[in-house]
Each structure stands twice: as C-alpha cells, then as structure tokens.
Design a protein around this nucleic acid. Structure first.
Lengths: 159, 159
DNA sequence: AACGTAAGTTCCCTCAGGGAACCCCAATTG
DNA sequence: CAATTGGGGTTCCCTGAGGGAACTTACGTT
C-alpha cells in the first residue's frame, strides 16, 4: 500500500492504483496470467520478498482480482485470475505495448503476442466503443461525470 | 523508486513500471494532461509531499515523459507531456475504463470522455492492430520475442 | 519416526515517503 | 532602493513499508 490512500479520490485512475498501484502487483498479475499460479513459483520468478508477496496476494484476493483455491488435500493453494482480474490484464497489454515501443531498444520486444482470431503477431490498438475510430489522449475531452466530486478530490470537511 | 529495480527485467511491463510505477506518477501525468502544469498546482491538487513531487517530476523528465520549460522571465517552469508521455495517457485511459467498470459503484464514473471524431461520450476498446477484431487477455498467446532473456529474467551470473 | 515440501510468519534493518520549515530568485511595491 | 511576494524548489527529522533470512505449520512420503 502506498503511504497515501488513493481510494478516496473521485478518480478512477486513483482507485485503480489503489488495487494494483503498489510495486509488484502488476508483475504478480502478469505471472499469474502466464501460468505461474503458486506462491513458490511467484516468489522464485520475481525475486520478491516472501512477506511482501503474501501481502500483495492477500490484497489482490481481497480486491476480487485473484482467487485463492486449494489444489491438493495438503494445505496447498494456487491463485487464479477472476474476471475482474482478467480484464486488468488488458491494462498490462497496453503497458507492454508502450514499453515495447519506447523502451525495448535494439533488442526488440521481449515478448510477442499472437492473436487467436487472426493468427497474426500483433499489438493492441485503442478505439472508440461508439464509432470504432482510433481514440487516443489527444482525441478526447474529459468532462465531469455523475460520480464527480463537488470541486476536485480534496476532502470537503475539516482542517 | 521502488526498492527493487525493475528496469533490468526483460519485460516491457516491468520496464514501464520503472518509468511510472512509483506511487503518484500516474496521477501526476493525469493532472498534467488535464492542464495542471505547474509545481504549485500539482502539489495543491494531489496533496503530495513537495519533496516527492520534485523527485517524481525529475524522474519523469529524465525518462522523456515530461518536458520542463520556463513560462516567464522569472524562474518559473511548467511541465508538459512529450509525445512519449502523451502515449502514456492512453494507458491512463484504459486504467480509468477499468476503474469506471469495476470500482465506480452507484455514483457512476467520476469523469466522462467525449471523442472528438464522433462527438459521443464513450470509452476505449482494445482491438488487434492486424485484423481490427477485439483483443483481450484471453484472445492472445504470449511467445518469446527477439529481446527475450535466455531463460527468464533472473540475472544469469553469480550466486 | 524421520524427512520433504508448499505456503506462509516473524524478526530485524534500512531506506523511501510524509510533513513542515526553510531558501533562492526575480519582479513588484512603497 | 529596501522590503515584500510568490513560484519552485531543498533540508530536516520521523515513521513505516520493503528486503532478507530464519523459523513455523500442516500434511504426505519413505
């Protein structure tokens, strides 16, 4: 958990960060997605401290992003993505796309993605759900929605 | 900066996290994107410690995500998104979309987005750059790319 | 009975984040 | 021309999260 709690802000970005904003969380999700479902596997692959891994897994389970389930009659558990968690992987794909483009350098992307539907190795593209045209940061205007806070995100009371 | 350095991992997700993975960084980008370009504005809006804000801004500038430029003959500076940074906002849009869907609750999304091209208030949709069909976590297979590490991401030497 | 193994706990240490006070520089004001 | 203002940071101390390694628990296997 970050030192400052983001969950109270009226901002879906801040709230999302409250779920996967701590260091390691996105990498844990990535690993679970590619089939590293067990504590020991995650710890070995990431090199994360066992204590922190425990915290992260508990948090992700609490948030409904992962599900913890037994896979043996011994006390053994594995972590799998829920639907909520699987949709977070979309976010990881976009993250990977940006990293591939801007950070991969000479060597090229470390991982490629093959799309089942067409069989091609390709990337992900952002499009408007309404008209299907490309939709990027410069193509949109943000405006206050129904869940907006009165002014911004500062707590209104006290001081 | 996280305690563990992610930049050495052969993973575009990890590398991207090294750029915007610290707490506050995505929120700083969000604010800059919506027009809060100055130190004082950012500090006031986010409630972030001045020290940490300085660190974050410097880091984002070093990474080429923000540009720091004077806006007065006095020593006054503002921060603007570079192209690299603007493309990161795409990531924020996906983050916001996930938060809107899974975390907004009764009140509904705090912010809406109007697409210039069609004028509609809509969201963002992930599609395959090759075939244009929807592309989500379950629609793809990851496979090693040219920049892949020999086995995984562990440093090969020592121990 | 001894051993192995996955999945955590516990403990201590260090260093990043929070918070408040302080500093620097140029322009404006009296 | 001294004093003031205000943006944009530094500096300082304190707390608590992350790293690391050792220890524990609960079951199976030999």
């Amino acid at each position: 958990m970050q030192r400052t709690d983001f969950s109270a802000m009226a901002c879906s970005i801040a709230r999302t960060l409250d779920v996967i904003g701590e260091p390691w969380s996105p990498l844990v999700l990535r690993d679970v997605w590619v089939g590293l479902n067990r504590f020991e596997q995650l710890q070995a692959d990431l090199g994360i401290s066992r204590k922190v891994l425990t915290e992260r897994l508990n948090h992700l389970v609490e948030q409904g992003v992962l599900e913890r389930r037994p896979y043996d009659r011994r006390p053994r558990y594995e972590y799998v993505l829920t639907e909520k968690g699987t949709e977070l992987v979309d976010l990881l794909m976009v993250m990977a796309g940006w990293g591939d483009k801007w950070l991969a350098g000479e060597a090229g992307p470390p991982v490629l993605y093959r799309h089942h539907a067409c069989g091609e190795i390709s990337g992900v593209d952002l499009r408007c759900t309404a008209c299907g045209e490309p939709m990027h940061a410069n193509d949109i205007d943000p405006l206050p929605g129904p869940g907006a806070a009165p002014t911004t995100a500062r707590p209104p009371a006290g001081r």
